[in-house]
Design a binder for these strands. Structure first.
Lengths: 216, 216
DNA sequence: CGGGCCATTGACATCCATCAAAGCGTGTGG
DNA sequence: CCACACGCTTTGATGGATGTCAATGGCCCG
């Protein structure tokens, strides 16, 4: 949440949270087509969002963790335009969008914050397009892992150790690769001494080598 | 712009336009890293937006035409996060973002409109991710052409004829393909009687066939 | 009218997908 | 609490779609 607010403003922003909701692993927070009413702020847990084409293919569009916002895609058409699914037991704050709009008319810092959140998502998406459009499998995975560990580190976790909450298939969907390619590439990183891979437990042994794959 | 406004509100929204700016083909409206101050509404002409990775690769993230908004990616960090370049001579309205924020606190319909524009961009980006992550070259190109012609049709142009403002390389960058693949795929569509291709002049001969490539 | 950019086309290489099989973990129910 | 089954992951063999390199040709703009 934004900084530099009056206590009074802060109190009102806190008041936006209408309720909390707990989800179990694999439970959907919302589905594509469902009526849009609220944004959700993740308190704990990890989510994935996915879109599907009419012929059944689907694509993971992102992985979200504590502090990040879900539901922005619903604003435009008054219905959610993707599925959001918990990858582990999770808890979210439910924030009715109408209340956000009302309060952000009175609290410029909140208004600014909302705009920034949406803009940040747009910039992130453009980065993913760059990845999907022009990188090779190893680079994609390196970018993915570095991004993940950086976000985890910002939340107080290790800079080098991580527990993947998503399957190889979900990673592959996000990165535009098949699950076998994800698995093979992880194995290659392990062979090269860049990673230690124990199922979903990863340990980054040579962060600079990963960096170099992105920035050769 | 939104509908159902009071004349007074409409007048004030019109007043947001600080100036207009004309651009020549290949001229940049803004560059990555430049200070963000305004959004731009396209009056005439076509633009591309592109992002670049540090090692020089770049990726076209979209093609924009009359009525669409450029610059949303700049909000988050107070500087533009992509390049926007005119693909033909063009004219835009310059809309200072500060004024938008101020006025949208007083005019809920404007506030809502801004939110929808940003949300629409997010949804569009997710669609592109689906395309880049899971479609084959022919499907990508079919989706691209159908989208383009639909947007042109909404602006009063033909439902079947179009003049590409972008090169094969730019299309390829957008679709995650090499220019040769774009060219070959267009040639194949022509052989199959789906398209007539005369350099950048395209004519869709069998729209249903294109549709079926997307939705098999 | 000419030069340079853009597009087309061919031959070949490469990366990743596909198909297949086996191993490992996890969690679930008896 | 243990055992089994299922899902997830790994790994191998093979093929196909697209990238790469190269040469030619056409169009547009200056």
């Amino acid at each position: 949440m934004p900084v530099g607010l009056q206590p009074e403003e802060l109190r009102r922003i806190d008041g936006l949270v209408a309720s909390r909701r707990r989800l179990k692993r694999r439970e959907a927070l919302f589905h594509n087509g469902e009526k849009f009413e609220s944004l959700f702020a993740i308190r704990t847990g990890t989510f994935k969002t996915c879109v599907a084409s009419e012929d059944g293919r689907d694509q993971v569009t992102g992985f979200q963790m504590a502090g990040e916002i879900l539901g922005l895609d619903g604003i435009v058409s008054d219905q959610y335009n993707c599925d959001a699914v918990a990858l582990e037991d999770a808890e979210v704050c439910v924030i009715p969008f109408g209340s956000i709009e009302t309060l952000s008319r009175e609290v410029p810092a909140l208004q600014r914050h909302i705009h920034q959140i949406m803009s940040r998502e747009i910039v992130r998406d453009h980065g993913v397009m760059l990845l999907l459009g022009s990188m090779r499998a190893e680079e994609r995975l390196a970018v993915f892992l570095l991004n993940l560990v950086q976000r985890l580190h910002a939340r107080g976790f290790s800079r080098s150790e991580l527990l993947l909450r998503m399957s190889r298939e979900e990673i592959g969907s996000y990165l535009g690769l098949k699950l076998e390619t994800v698995s093979r590439t992880l194995s290659k990183f392990a062979e090269d001494g860049v990673l230690d891979v124990q199922q979903r437990h990863l340990r980054i042994l040579d962060a600079q080598a990963l960096q170099r794959m992105v920035n050769p």
